[in-house]
Computed example of a mutant assay.
Amino acid sequence: MKRIGTIFIILVILYSVYYDLTIGTLPNGLTEVEVTTIEETETEIVTEEINASVPFDPFQEVTVEPGHTVLSIVEHLHEGPIPASIQEIVFDFQELNGGTKPEEIQIGKAYLFPVYH
């Protein structure tokens, strides 16, 4: 009975490792089409709501240097804790820069980064 239990546990662990390495639990780009369609619709709705009720937060133009990321630059612009989630920072960055994704920023180019109060 112990052998069957041990074999079962080993099979479950092997299957979990296989599933994590092949499909994974994090987005891998394969589902990007579905997510993009949903996000575009949500973005349009949110953008309309923002434009109707709340003006945009202030921003600052920064030239990207080697090793900088959107999050590191936004953290550098604030002295204390940032009152926004990473998702909000990414969304605001894309809105300020015409849809440029944070992973597509280039060294030497200037981008607008959100400043939160």
Rank of each mutant, 00 (worst) to 15 (best):
A84T: 06
S85C: 03
I50R: 07
G80A: 12
A84G: 03
V62E: 04
P58T: 13
G24F: 06
Q87I: 10
G67D: 04
D92F: 01
V54T: 10
E39H: 12
E48V: 08
E48K: 14
F56G: 02
F91L: 12
V64E: 07
A84I: 05
T63G: 01
T63A: 06
G24L: 13
E79A: 05
I89Y: 01
V54W: 03
P66W: 03
V54R: 05
N28I: 11
P55E: 08
E34M: 15
S53D: 00
T63Q: 09
I86Y: 03
Q60E: 14
P66S: 10
A84E: 05
V35F: 09
T36M: 13
V33D: 08
N51A: 09
G29R: 10
G29Y: 03
T41G: 13
P58K: 09
E40S: 14
N28W: 01
P55N: 06
V64R: 02
V74C: 05
V46E: 08
A84Y: 03
I82K: 03
E49N: 07
E88G: 02
H68D: 14
L30C: 03
V54F: 01
D92W: 01
V70R: 09
P58Q: 06
V64C: 04
T69L: 07
F56S: 10
H76E: 15
H78P: 00
V35A: 15
T37G: 14
I45C: 01
N51S: 09
P83M: 05
D92K: 06
G24C: 09
I50D: 02
P81K: 07
E79V: 14
P83R: 12
V54C: 04
P66A: 11
T36W: 07
